[in-house]
Design a protein around this nucleic acid. Sequence first.
RNA 1: GCGCCUGUAGCUCAGUUGGAUUAGAGCGUUUGCUUGCGGAGCAAAAGGCCAGGGGUUCGAAUCCCUUCAGGCGCACCA
Length: 601
Amino acid sequence: MFEQDLELISTQVRSALAELGVPGADQTEIKWTQTPFAGQWGLGTNACFQAAAAEARGGKKVNVPQRAQELARLVADRVVLPAGFTRVVSDKAYVNAYFDTSAYAGRVVSAAIDGGPDFGRGPTRTERVMVEYAQPNTHHSFHIGHARNAILGESLARLFEFAGYTTLRAAYPGDIGLGVITVVWAYNKFYKGQEPAGLHERGQWLLKIYAEATALLTEKEGESAEDKARREAYDAERREIYKRWDAGDAEIRALWETTRAWSLDELNAILADLDIHIDFWFYESEEDEPSKAVVDKLIASGIAEDQRPEGPVIVKIDEKLGLTKDKYGVAVVLRSDGTTLYLTKDLSLAQKKFTEHHVDQSIYVVDFRQSLHFQQAFKILELMGYKQAEKCYHLSYGFVTLPEGAMSARRGTVVLYKDVADEAVRRVHATIAEKNPDLPQADRDRVAREIGLGALCYALLGVDNVKGITFEWDAALSMDGKSAPYIQNGHVRANSILKKAGELPTNAAFGDDLNPLEVALIELIANFPRTVQQAAEDHKPLLMATYAYDLAKAFHSFYHEVPVNQAEPQIRAARLRLTAAVRQTLANALRLLVVKAPDVM
RNA sequence: GCGCCUGUAGCUCAGUUGGAUUAGAGCGUUUGCUUGCGGAGCAAAAGGCCAGGGGUUCGAAUCCCUUCAGGCGCACCA
């Protein structure tokens, strides 16, 4: 908001320091940070620390902190302020420039109100960003770990979109592979023709079949000869099914298609439930054929070495990059029998993203165990000459575990997303019945969903993505303290005040004697656009989650301490506008967290 | 063995990219606050050798080295 004026002051600080004989002062970069609140607020710089340190390094005998303080005083005396600033003073070794409080407050609040749903939106950029998330395997069911992936990806996509980038959302289900075939085999053998009623029931049934099948195919301790023979026979059948699938056998393909559709239907329903709308669906099964062409290309260009039939097709990444140390290792891009691998398909999919979808920046939301895989993939793309490779980013995250250990589809110990979502809604219904029995029945279902799912999403985004989450029901569905309902409640309260007030004044002057809590709110609102940019650039929805909480917390304090509707007319008008600005900013922040902002709860 | 990630209050986690007397929240514990705009709330108290040790710097939870503890990867799984 003050970039140009600040540059003016920066120039003055530089020349003042130079005049005072600080070596290299005219080159110094002056960084401004917000001053801690002291009745008034503004921006400050610690440049004098650097200046004093530079003097010390230059051989001058000085006590750095003392000298810095002295310099700050001298610099502050020499700065002539542009309009909009009221005073410049030194505080310890800082040089602080303070704003015209009321003018600044009015400006910030109006920006939020006038901007509406677009308040905080960044300038339009030409860069196209694709975020790939939602890559669950089909023939399983969507569990709480998949939910973390989907929410993280969706929040990041919304952040990029709002930050000003053209944003494309991509899903990439794993619809083929041994795990999938295992289910097709077991379904065909034991359950053929059966089909549970209900979308989620069908999806979840496949998970049960998978767990059963895996048990049948896994060697047990002290297994009898008879058991062993049966197990091996089953395994042979499974391999046979895979071969038939590969050969395009119509019967097997039909079975696969049917069961696959059950999974994808459930996935679609869940994504819709979370208000996630994917632009491009890629499937592993569809990358199989095209990916073979990538291998040919790699061999032809000398990047890959073909060791067939004795060995696979490999890329010696370190060697090709000219590295002496072992860093990326050797990647296998095609099996010796000519079949493709996960990496093969990811290479061709990346190529498709670059060439067909003109993606400049490609983000992969995948758990942290795949780090090496993506490093290898990105380096091979670089070797292939794709300059977009350097803008490929693996957003790695820790997975969701249970207090008793890792979730396992094989053992059937998974917490399903659907169960958690249902429980969340159930708990909110109970809370509404207790705390707000007057809420019209017609609103209850909607509100319960918005609060319940919000709580869940916030719990998944409120922890840094590099860290794992131990799933616990009460923590994940918390409605107190640092949680979505707390933030939503702030929104509801702001809304309630505004509703009671009637029409919103079109403008209002803020006095100079603002309450500290008002100042805190204005400061936070002013920071929102910057936070959007940073959260996108750092790939960290957590920053937005923290921001939304901080704003809600400040508003709750304000609400208790500072009367709005009961205040004198002029002050009332200003506070109403401040409240409206808070409501808008909370709504915008929540939207970026894939959480709804209800008007009542 | 090599590489990556993590270690902050009893528990779960933040910490604005090296800065502002005293490192912050939530939960839990203790104590207040509803004739007041919605108490899913507010105010306050207690609780810390920022895993240990070295270093760089005017200044370190943050950067470097090292030790310890946990997790995860490392050529034909996805």
